[in-house]
Amino acid sequence: MPRASSKRKSSAPQNPPAVKSSNARSAGKAKAKEIENFFDKYANGGIIDPDGIVTLCKDLELEYTDVRILMLAWKLKAVKLGYFTQDEWETGLKTLQVNNLSKLKKAISELEKEVRTPPNFADFYSFAFRYHLTEEKQKNIDIETICELLNLVLGPQFRRQVDLLIDYLKVQSNYKVINLDQWLGIFRFCNEISFPDLENYDETQAWPLILDNFVDWLRENHR
């Protein structure tokens, strides 16, 4: 799993190098133009802002809270929550080999498969956290957002764990925010710990305290 502080650019999977024939270059130029037009359709003042994303979602026939939008953001290596810059848009769409709406629609369902493969998913998972850090030097995300995010990102895969964890996060009072380490710990927990018996959970290991507490709570309330 990549470090929290590592450069985001390096964390996405490598794409095949662009083909460099002159033909391809002119075709590429045309494509680049199309991508630019595609961008302009949603952009407002040189950037796709939240309104633009809502419109885009409507065109893609997706809810804007759909996990696939988050996946698209991951693929575009978007930095700021709710915005796609022109640069992000163009590089991203090029790697997706997409230049219009219908292609993007198709690519997004492919993208979901790509994200669900293990190494990508781990990267996507930590991206989801970092993407929601909106303030300068912000390191934590409030519990409420975390619950929604968990539901969105891990929900389909680990329904029971996520439901119980959200229940717990809402009743506990020790934590108001979650940091990246805890966030990654949750992912590791869902992947490694047999559920619901929690047989292989070992408190003497370096699990974040919040998970120790969660396990205590589970053992008390759900046995």
């Binding site: 470090r3 390191k139 934590n140 940091n179 380490d181 990654l184 370096a206 974040p208 305290l209 120790d212």
Partner: peptide, 19 residues
């Protein structure tokens, strides 16, 4: 041990440690 873990959590947030 719990107090200890709590401090480790703190140290991670403060970038003294990382996993």
């Amino acid at each position: 041990v719990k107090a200890f873990k709590k401090r480790i959590e703190g140290l991670i947030s403060q970038d003294y440690l990382e996993r």
